[in-house]
Computed example of a mutant assay.
Amino acid sequence: MLDNCVILAGGKSSRMGKDKTLMSFHNEPSLTHYIHKKLSKIFQNVYISSKFNKFNPPLNVINDEISDIFSPMIALASILPKFNAPVFITTADMPFIKISSILELAKYKDEYDVVIASDDEFRHTLCGFYSPTLANKAKFLAQNNQHKIGTLIQNANIKIVNFDDKKQFFNINTPHEYESALDENF
Rank of each mutant, 00 (worst) to 15 (best):
M1P: 10
M1G: 09
L2S: 06
L2R: 11
V6Y: 06
L8N: 08
G10A: 12
G11R: 04
S14W: 08
G17H: 05
D19N: 13
K20G: 09
L22R: 10
M23W: 09
M23H: 09
F25I: 03
F25C: 04
E28L: 10
L31A: 10
L31S: 11
Y34M: 01
K37I: 03
L39E: 07
K41A: 12
I42H: 07
F43W: 02
N45C: 01
S49R: 08
S49Q: 07
K51Q: 12
F52H: 14
F55D: 00
N56Q: 13
P58W: 04
L59F: 05
N60Q: 09
N60K: 15
N60A: 11
V61E: 04
N63R: 15
E65L: 14
D68I: 07
S71D: 05
P72H: 11
I74E: 02
A77N: 05
S78Q: 06
I79Y: 06
F83C: 07
N84C: 04
A85G: 02
A85P: 01
A85Q: 14
P86K: 04
F88M: 06
F88R: 08
I89G: 06
M94L: 11
F96N: 02
I97D: 03
K98Q: 08
S101F: 07
I102H: 02
E104P: 04
Y108K: 09
K109L: 08
Y112V: 09
Y112A: 08
D113R: 03
D113A: 07
V114A: 10
I116P: 03
A117V: 02
S118T: 12
D120L: 12
D120F: 10
E121A: 13
F122W: 12
F122M: 09
H124S: 03
H124P: 03
H124R: 08
H124V: 03
F129T: 13
Y130S: 14
T133S: 14
T133Q: 13
T133H: 13
K137M: 08
A138C: 11
L141D: 01
A142C: 06
Q143R: 11
Q143T: 06
Q143E: 15
Q143K: 14
N144E: 03
H147P: 04
L152Y: 00
L152F: 03
N155S: 15
K159Q: 11
K159Y: 07
I160T: 15
D164K: 15
K166H: 10
K167G: 00
Q168N: 02
Q168H: 03
N171L: 11
N171Y: 12
N173Y: 05
N173W: 00
T174Q: 01
T174N: 00
S180T: 12
S180H: 09
L182S: 00
L182D: 02
N185H: 12
N185I: 04
